[in-house]
């Protein structure tokens, strides 16, 4: 294709500047919608992380009386293992539980505790975490069992809320992305309408469609790129802001820590945002030009 880069960039720059208010509008719309898309993607990944961590972690803890015999302890373990929705159970000694209590129990409660009176326990991961309440019912009254602990209903609610939220975010982001594309399309269409005389002369003297189309597509590319760069900045700001929060968080088991993401995931999200922005700009403008090329 014998289209000089200089020609394309000169035409595109002139046009962007001539319609600068529309350019700003298009860039901002792309930025806002893509920032939401990016945030939704981060939230979705975070939620997936948190859910994964919870599910890998202990779902049910069966505390065994401090005075129970070793055979009682192993028999409870065997019964747990036989349940179809239990993936695996790990035994924890009294000393281990005593050490754990040191870090999670309030000081005054811990002071009353000694390794001898601390219960030993079975920590069970479930293949169906929703069945935790069944275990609570079955084992609560058994001989030797002190009590059964399962994650609170609050955590379940939290999971549902996050799932709903991430879909809502994605839906809003999709709608905004669509409106950004329409705005880009409209911006370019106005730019072409203002230059239809030029386009008709170009067609008359035998310019190829690609030659006419390229400057407009470059224009859309710049709008999409600028918008998505702003969006990437927002996403990165969000990420680093939350990262700070997780470092200073008092409770290391809080939701925000559970959701924390790796740098690679954030990088991928940023690349997705950039690519979507550029594609929206280029495809939007290519569609806008099409009608004017039909002679």
């Amino acid at each position: 294709m014998a289209v000089s880069m200089r020609y394309v960039s000169r035409e595109a720059t002139t046009n962007l500047w001539r319609n600068r208010m529309m350019t700003v509008a298009a860039v901002l719309t792309v930025a806002v919608s893509l920032a939401l898309v990016g945030s939704a993607l981060l939230l979705k990944q975070g939620a997936a992380h948190a859910t994964e961590r919870w599910q890998q972690g202990v779902n049910v803890v069966v505390f065994v009386d401090a005075g129970a015999s070793h055979s009682e302890f192993t028999s409870i373990g065997r019964q747990l293992d036989q349940l179809p929705y239990v993936r695996s159970c790990t035994p924890r000694s009294q000393a281990w539980d005593y050490n754990e209590a040191r870090s999670i129990e309030p000081a005054e409660v811990f002071q009353a505790l000694t390794p001898a009176i601390t219960p030993s326990s079975w920590r069970c991961a479930l293949s169906q975490p929703s069945e935790a309440s069944l275990i609570v019912q079955q084992f609560s009254g058994k001989p030797g069992v002190q009590h059964v602990a399962s994650p609170s209903a609050q955590i379940r609610t939290m999971e549902t809320v996050i799932h709903v939220l991430q879909w809502a975010f994605l839906a809003v982001a999709a709608i905004l992305l669509l409106s950004a594309s329409v705005l880009i399309l409209n911006t370019i269409r106005m730019a072409i309408f203002a230059r239809r005389r030029e386009v008709s002369v170009m067609k008359l003297v035998g310019a190829t469609n690609w030659f006419i189309r390229l400057p407009f597509m470059a224009e859309g590319l710049v709008q999409g790129l600028l918008g998505s760069l702003v969006a990437v900045l927002v996403v990165l700001g969000l990420y680093f802001g939350l990262l700070d929060q997780t470092k200073t968080a008092a409770n290391q088991s809080s939701l925000i820590v559970q959701m924390s993401l790796g740098g690679a995931e954030v990088a991928v999200t940023c690349i997705v945002v950039l690519v979507v922005g550029v594609l929206a700009g280029v495809i939007g403008s290519a569609l806008a030009v099409r009608r004017f090329l039909d002679v």
Binding site: V3, S200, V201, V205
Partner: peptide, 21 residues
Amino acid sequence: FRLLPSKSVFENVAFALEVIG
């Protein structure tokens, strides 16, 4: 005539060559 009003005489004529590369 169908000339481009914002371009000079030279540019109008040159435009025809420019757009065919």
